[in-house]
């Protein structure tokens, strides 16, 4: 594929979206290149999780304006499953439980769907087991995870590890981690962030959606964006996150109000 700027993984321009006819995203601009890690921060209700879900194609959200180009193609034209197969991965803030469906079955189906997409042969259960066990070591996961129902009765930390395991299996071009740090104790946070760091490379890109800067002590972002009322209101480097930590989100809002002369 010929692209003007082949470095760009994701280009969001003027993105607007509503849920139940209430506008949540009010014009988002964001450019993400290969090898970059972007952190999107903001208060509750600022729209950061909505942005994650809109990019993944959640049905409850309606895009009312703007464009999203992913790897040179119009992402908004694709169904959620096609976006996933094209390489957009969302680590859920609240991973869904699917009782009675073995985790190994679910993971294998997801992985084989991707292989089929790439024109590769599917792995049978035994081949897959070897493959997935290697990936699980990365996240210090007990092999009995495979036999349990998908997220069924998992602790918060186990659910988040299971999300990152799926990221490891599916090797997305763009991984969006939606508050992956929430509900994690210190050890789990270390394991999960180590896993993410090992998965980050020059060819993929990561968007971290987070409320707190503590995750950014482990995963160092190239850019930090602050969202407020459905817009990115400030962009900076890692130091911006530290400044937010000490001065609070009010500081950004206050600065904006001052700039606007309110």
């Amino acid at each position: 594929m010929i692209r003007a700027d082949s470095d760009i993984v994701l280009e969001v321009h003027g993105l607007r979206a509503t849920v139940n006819d209430i506008e949540i995203l009010k014009g988002i601009d964001l450019t993400v290149r290969r090898g970059e890690i972007h952190a999107i921060m903001g208060t509750n209700g600022s729209g950061k999780s909505t942005l994650a879900k809109v990019l993944a194609g959640h049905e409850a959200y309606r895009v009312t304006g703007g464009s999203v180009v992913f790897e040179g193609g119009n992402l908004l034209d694709l169904e959620p499953e096609a976006r996933a197969r094209a390489g957009v991965f969302l680590a859920f803030q609240y991973p869904i439980e699917i009782p009675g469906v073995a985790n190994s079955h679910f993971l294998r189906l997801a992985y084989n769907t991707l292989r089929a997409q790439r024109g590769e042969e599917e792995l049978d259960p035994l081949e897959f087991e070897d493959f997935v066990r290697d990936k699980m070591k990365l996240l210090e996961m007990n092999p009995d995870f495979l036999d349990r129902g998908v997220n069924e009765g998992f602790s918060g930390g186990e659910k988040k590890r299971n999300e990152i395991l799926q990221m490891a299996l599916l090797e997305p071009r763009l991984a969006i981690l939606d508050e992956t740090d929430s509900g994690l104790d210190i050890d789990a946070l270390r394991i999960v962030t180590q896993g993410v760091n090992r998965l980050a490379n020059r060819d993929n890109a990561i968007i971290l959606v987070t409320h707190y800067q503590r995750m950014l002590n482990h995963i160092v972002p190239d850019y930090v964006h602050v969202m407020e009322s459905g817009r990115i209101v400030k962009t900076g480097e890692k130091s911006l996150a530290l400044e937010l930590e000490t001065r609070g989100y009010d500081w950004v809002s206050g600065e904006r109000r001052a700039a606007a002369g309110v």
Binding site: P95, F106, T113
Partner: peptide, 25 residues
């Protein structure tokens, strides 16, 4: 929608998702 979206986000279409959810249940 959220369950189906979870499957879709892993590349698994709705028909297969419903079938898996029901069979698991």
């Amino acid at each position: 929608e959220d369950q189906l979206f979870y499957f879709a986000q892993r590349g698994i279409g709705n028909e297969e998702a419903v079938s898996m959810i029901i069979n698991g249940f």
